[in-house]
Design a protein around this nucleic acid. Structure first.
Lengths: 330, 330
DNA sequence: CAGACATGTGTGATCGATTCCACAATGTGC
DNA sequence: GCACATTGTGGAATCGATCACACATGTCTG
């Protein structure tokens, strides 16, 4: 790999002059310019951003920790980030925790060791170990999806979104509503969405049977299984079903259809997240759009402000949401 | 940020000894061990991978260039890569070209300037400028999705897959088959899949009307529009329709349903790519599984072999495929 | 008891860039 | 003709790590 010294030698100048030429700083004579530019052309020299980073104490790299790469939500969030970061000349160093809490912490350390200029953590939990690890970092951090104390966070309005959606279901005339949630370790999806659901019911004087409340992981098949359990464990069947993610809803619809339910006639279904497929399943799924790309952009923006020092120490931002009423709810 | 020199000073040893302690190379006395480990603990010191990279001439970072982050295909491919790369201690530096050919080339340069240990290029075209840029790189490169000359490549069997799928449609009794393709700049999807389709027809003595062959971009809505054009421009309607991606197929189904077609009774539809949603649309979409995660894994494996020098100079690998016959084709 | 060998530590060069500072030339004003 | 900009260049330190090598002990062996 050709270095600045090679260029200097072959152009008959010092590496200082080459550096000046490249960065357009200070004086370089016309003759020197020509020589240097000719040699660079001939050798295909590309300055080492690496060496530069060491000297300048900045890498122009942002670390992004996500639970899993191959989910629609994540790819949309990361896409939003990239759009903003690329504009400012930053690149993304990707770190997947594969939904492993220990690995999530390791990834943070790893990114710190690479001296990234900042970290965006798409968090799935709020365990003390994670908070501790985040606090010990000496790089600016922005959390996405979970409200981490004393850390800049971009969160979805999970509570209100779930509440609105539930009200919409009630409004459609349903009073017996089933629920497919996820583990409470995920505070945003597991706790807040469930709370929004339950509060909306309470405010309208509705109650739920225990069998109507199911918990699943994040896959479509988990939704299928949860729906099956719900049907089996319910003494009286609900007439509508709210799943906290679209994938769970799609899985549930699959089971319901298999069991011969008329959708949405005998069972209305709603999901959350506005996934791509939600508009194309049959019946089209009623859901909530969280503006994931936008969340990525906002978090990147906050991080950049923190890096350049033009920011409040801790900035909290709550994303908007939007109800998408479709055929699956009547 | 605390450095190895700070640790050395506070532990009362030289930085060499600290380095030895960290890397478990050479002798370090029990007393020195204790001091160093205590100081590291107290300061939260994390060695700079950056400085290490400069010295060792390797970064443990792999650059991945993709056309767009927020597509299911890409996130699955990248997920596969990450699985392999993480095992070997590599991280992924993500570079999206946003489907811009010029930017694709810039991203390659940028990754080279960061001295990544290798690059995986998920290519969408084979333009001479791109080939030139790739050849000028002084890092190992693996291409995915397109067969780049003299470059290790992992390709899908686009031709055979399209041909098999078409034969399957013929086998189901259809002889008039419409086609929604994409621009030929994308050699694999635009040219090879179309060729597979046409060759299968030719071998079976079937022909196509011009109106039956439509071209679209990669979105669902493009599929809707292409199907509308197809219906409009056909003198006699086909009884089946092959779209080169699932999203196009889903879009087409949307239009067909809107126009009152009974699916698959009046029009059978097939897609390609085995997207997540393909199994959950109605009717479930017949498609071809390209094993995208696996392609990511294979490409990462080839790259790692190239980096460690245990590889042939150029390695070509062709992925397997699998027909998924579902309700949309009868 | 000399030389070999294991144990333990530090000095200084190195990786590839940037940048402060010193120092030449040359021109310019008074 | 002297002081002083302006223009142009290079030497050397620096960023934070690794590592070859030198050098000190202490112990074992023939």
């Amino acid at each position: 790999m050709v270095t600045i010294n090679d260029i200097a030698r072959r152009a008959g100048v010092s590496r200082t002059t080459v550096s000046r030429f490249i960065n357009e700083s200070g004086y370089v004579s016309e003759k020197a310019r020509e020589n240097i530019s000719r040699v660079i052309e001939a050798t295909g020299y590309v300055p080492s951003e690496q060496a530069k980073s060491l000297r300048l104490k900045r890498t122009k790299v942002i670390g992004v920790v996500i639970p899993k790469i191959s989910t629609e939500t994540m790819s949309r969030v990361v896409n939003g980030m990239d759009e903003i970061l690329q504009q400012e000349g930053y690149q993304i160093l990707l770190a997947s925790s594969s939904l492993d809490k220990q690995k999530e912490i390791e990834q943070l350390k790893l990114l710190e060791s690479r001296r990234v200029d900042g970290i965006i953590l798409v968090a799935t939990n709020r365990e003390p170990e994670l908070l501790e690890a985040v606090k010990n970092l000496s790089v600016p951090v922005v959390a996405v999806g979970q409200h981490l104390p004393e850390i800049s966070s971009v969160v979805y309005n999970d509570y209100e979104a779930a509440k609105s959606l539930t009200k919409e279901i009630l409004h459609a005339g349903h009073t017996k509503i089933g629920f497919i949630g996820v583990d409470e370790a995920d505070y945003s999806v597991g706790v807040l969405r469930k709370k929004g659901f339950l509060d909306a019911l309470k405010e309208n004087g509705c109650s739920v049977e225990t069998g109507w409340m199911q918990t699943a992981s994040f896959s479509i098949s988990a939704g299928e299984e949860a729906a099956a359990r719900l049907l089996e464990q319910s003494k009286t069947l609900p007439t509508a079903l709210l799943a906290v993610t679209d994938r769970l809803a799609v899985g549930a619809m699959q089971t319901l259809r298999k069991e011969g339910f008329d959708l949405p006639g005998e069972m209305a279904v709603a999901g959350m997240g506005a996934s791509d497929m939600s508009a194309y399943v049959t019946p089209a799924l009623t859901t909530v759009d969280y503006y994931y790309e936008e969340a990525g952009k906002v978090s990147a923006g906050i991080l950049l402000k923190a890096i350049t020092g033009h920011a409040k120490k801790v900035e909290k931002s709550q994303m908007d949401y939007r109800l998408l009423k479709r055929d699956s709810l009547r």
